[in-house]
Design a protein around this nucleic acid. Structure first.
Length: 661
RNA sequence: GGUCCGGUAGCUCAGCUGAAUAGAGCAGCUGCCUUCUAAGCAGCAGGUCAUUGGUUUGAAUCCAAUCCGGAUCACCA
């Protein structure tokens, strides 16, 4: 490619002037070309130098004639001309200098509406229609790490994990499509008090039961014992809470004792409902920590850390069950990882970091031996990085892991797909990493996403209001099956074909539903709405794809060589034909935008709009019975390219598209 | 209390690096299957873009204040 290593800006100038070179043109979006041409025109006519980011090119509103609109208002103050006169001068110059690109213009108020040559759109279609990789970039050599999913091994995955997994998978695909080499990773939280809870309950109640002996999926099996533990804990905590409330505080000492006294007196005076609830929660927390069963769990954790053979064996056995269960779910939703980190291996990381930070004077030691960093100058708080007993905390482990990731993979960007309740954590993580100059610190990016809530409110595992991932997927798939059966369009499918189709549709619906919303926003998961397969949904887009494929299949049966080049035989486009090409042309920019914003929802919205645009075209114009053979070929190309782009866009969301449905 | 995020149609969401009458989907109401898949298409109805002030030729979009909702500020992870 001649201009391959020129800058974007330089390429643009070539494209705007040498516009009979189609290959070069394909390198840049049409709106960017118009933007650059406008910039050049302003310079040439008025010696006015305006940064391209200040030149507004919008899609022309459907009620006006034209394809793209140059907004003139901002130039008016620099040039003392009427909008009409200015528009005419710019329009004439633009069209004269870019005869292949632009065919005409009109001016309404301060808007210069430009019409792109039909032959230009047709050329664009000719060049790209058969390319399944349209919109994607070649490898740039950039390396990115995406950490996502990161489950706990004490309970099965739920709806929140699904949003995380879908986001992680999608962002990995999106970055790959933009030329990055992507390593998908996951940090498994396989150690800690929560695991011990499940282990302890299993010891007490299972009588040697296993997932195999009970037929229960491993992660659910272990999760059931976690719930069992929590129930016992609740029962044991209640009398202690009652005792505290009666002001019987024997057995408490130190900070706990003084805190309890403080809260109890505060409770007597407090009238604010929320504050009362908060105080009660604090008391409950202390009571929970004073139960016999909690003491057992803590002892178990100590034993685990000491390497107690029996505990470690049990831990390995139960984690193994959970991994077996997760594997099934991951396989079903398409999650996979190039590298898995286990917290049991990384939780000691960070010790060196602490030493390094102390040496560099970034950290400081308090009298009790604990180590801190003062972030008040950055508008944050003081943050503990090492406990007084010398063990590292979450943030320190994470810095250690960040360093390890960089050492192993050297990514220029390291993305963490983690819920927005940890915004503060990642802000601190990046800041500390930068302060102690961990390599790759600047590349840390927290892809923060909002909580998934139910119409009834927040999901709480303690209250049993979580939506289980496996249940939800089963439900979606079975609804997809029922729906498909009712429509009766695939009666000739065999059993495995049907199963695959139901999975594709059910999972497609679920993924699309969770990805169509801006990640950073909290979202409400309404089960009734999520199983709707009409409108702005995955199945709608999938259906459009299947519809197109049906046309192509039928045409293929008649003629084996289609679509053929149409050359110059077709020189003008109907409105809906052009509208579809315009939409297709924007795909490249959308793929780029999704990566820049780390936001798959722009692709979901685009895929829906494209499908909608196609369906409108489809009902108005026949492909098979087009007005002429040339038109038919053009429309077949349109069909093929639309199918390709739909499949590609959905692929970037991690969603499959069926050939028939 | 500090910090951060959000408040757009009955509901769920786009639009937020300012620009032409604020867009979708769902729900409601009308039409359209003898022609390439009706999981579709066309249309009707539905809005003081939380409130108030400011900047601007122009504000849902930028700024300030206020109100409402959420997250977070652990020697938990």
């Amino acid at each position: 490619m001649v201009f391959a290593d020129t800058t974007r800006r330089e390429t643009t100038i070539f494209a705007a002037t040498i516009n009979n070179n189609r290959i070069t043109l394909a390198e840049m979006s049409i709106s960017d070309q118009i933007r650059m041409a406008s910039k050049n025109t302003l310079e040439k006519l008025y010696s006015l130098s305006i940064d391209e980011s200040n030149i507004q090119i919008n899609e022309t509103k459907p009620e006006f004639e034209g394809d793209y609109t140059l907004v003139l208002f901002s130039f008016l103050k620099h040039l003392k001309k009427s909008p009409d006169q200015l528009g005419r001068e710019i329009g004439d110059e633009l069209v004269a200098n870019n005869p292949n690109l632009l065919s005409g213009f009109n001016i309404i108020k301060g808007f210069l509406n430009l019409t792109v040559n039909d032959s230009y759109w047709i050329d664009f279609l000719q060049v790209n229609y058969a390319d399944p990789g349209f919109g994607k970039k070649k490898s740039s050599g950039k390396k990115v790490m995406v950490e996502y999913s990161s489950p706990n091994t004490n309970k099965p995955l739920h709806l929140g994990h699904l949003r995380n997994n879908f986001l992680g998978l999608s962002i990995a695909e999106i970055l790959r499509a933009n030329g990055a080499g992507v390593t998908k990773t996951c940090i498994v939280n396989d150690r800690g008090i929560h695991i011990c809870k499940s282990m302890l309950a299993w010891q007490k109640y299972a009588n040697g039961a296993t997932p195999q002996s009970t037929g229960i999926k491993g992660d659910h099996f272990v999760g059931d014992y976690y719930v069992r533990f929590e129930n016992d804990l609740k029962i044991q905590a209640q009398p202690i809470i009652d005792r505290i409330k009666r002001n019987e505080l024997s057995g408490f000492e130190g900070n706990e004792l003084s805190d309890l006294k403080k809260w109890l007196t505060a409770l007597q005076r407090e009238t604010n409902k929320e504050k009362i609830e908060k105080l009660n929660d604090e008391i409950k927390e202390i009571a929970r920590n004073h139960t016999a069963i909690m003491a057992e769990a803590k002892q178990m954790l100590r034993n685990w850390e000491a390497g107690d053979k029996e505990v470690v064996e049990l831990w390995e056995k139960m984690n193994g069950w959970v991994y077996d269960g997760f594997a099934i779910t991951y396989n079903r939703i398409g999650s996979d990882f190039d590298k898995i980190y286990y917290e049991s291996n990384t939780y000691l990381l960070g010790k060196d970091i602490v030493k390094e930070g102390l040496d560099k004077g970034v950290f400081y030691k308090k009298e009790d031996g604990s180590v801190w960093i003062d972030l008040t100058a950055d508008g944050l708080d003081e943050k503990l990085v090492m406990r007084r007993d010398g063990t590292s905390v979450y943030i320190t482990q994470d810095i250690g892991l960040a360093e390890q990731k960089f050492n192993e993979y050297k990514p220029s960007e390291s993305i963490y797909v983690v819920g927005d309740e940890q915004n503060y954590h990642f802000k601190v993580l990046k800041l500390i990493a930068e302060k102690i100059k961990i390599p790759g610190a600047e590349g840390i990016y927290h892809l923060s996403y909002g909580m998934v809530e139910l119409p009834t409110g927040r999901m709480k595992s303690r209250e049993g209001t979580v939506v289980d991932a496996d249940d939800l997927i089963d439900e979606m798939v079975s609804i997809a099956g029922r729906h498909t059966e009712e429509l009766g369009k695939v009666k000739d499918f065999n059993e495995s074909e049907l199963k695959e189709l139901y999975d594709t549709i059910g999972l497609g619906a679920l993924k699309f539903f969770l990805l169509r919303v801006d990640p950073k926003k909290r979202m409400i998961f309404n089960p009734e709405e999520s199983i709707d397969f009409h409108g702005f949904t995955g199945p709608f887009v999938q259906y459009t794809h299947a519809r197109i494929k049906s046309i192509l299949r039928k045409e293929n049966a008649v003629s084996s060589r289609f679509p053929t080049a149409i050359g110059t035989a077709v020189s003008s486009l109907l409105k809906l034909e052009k509208g579809l090409i315009v939409k297709l042309e924007q795909y490249t920019a959308i793929v780029e935008q999704a990566a820049i914003e780390h936001n798959p929802s722009v692709l979901a919205i685009y895929a829906f709009e494209l499908a909608k645009t196609f369906n409108t075209f489809y009902t108005e114009h026949s492909v098979m019975n087009a007005e002429s053979e040339e038109k038919k070929q053009l429309r077949l190309q349109l069909c093929e390219m639309t199918a390709n782009v739909i499949a590609s866009a959905m692929g970037l969301l991690g969603i499959k598209v069926p050939e028939r449905m």
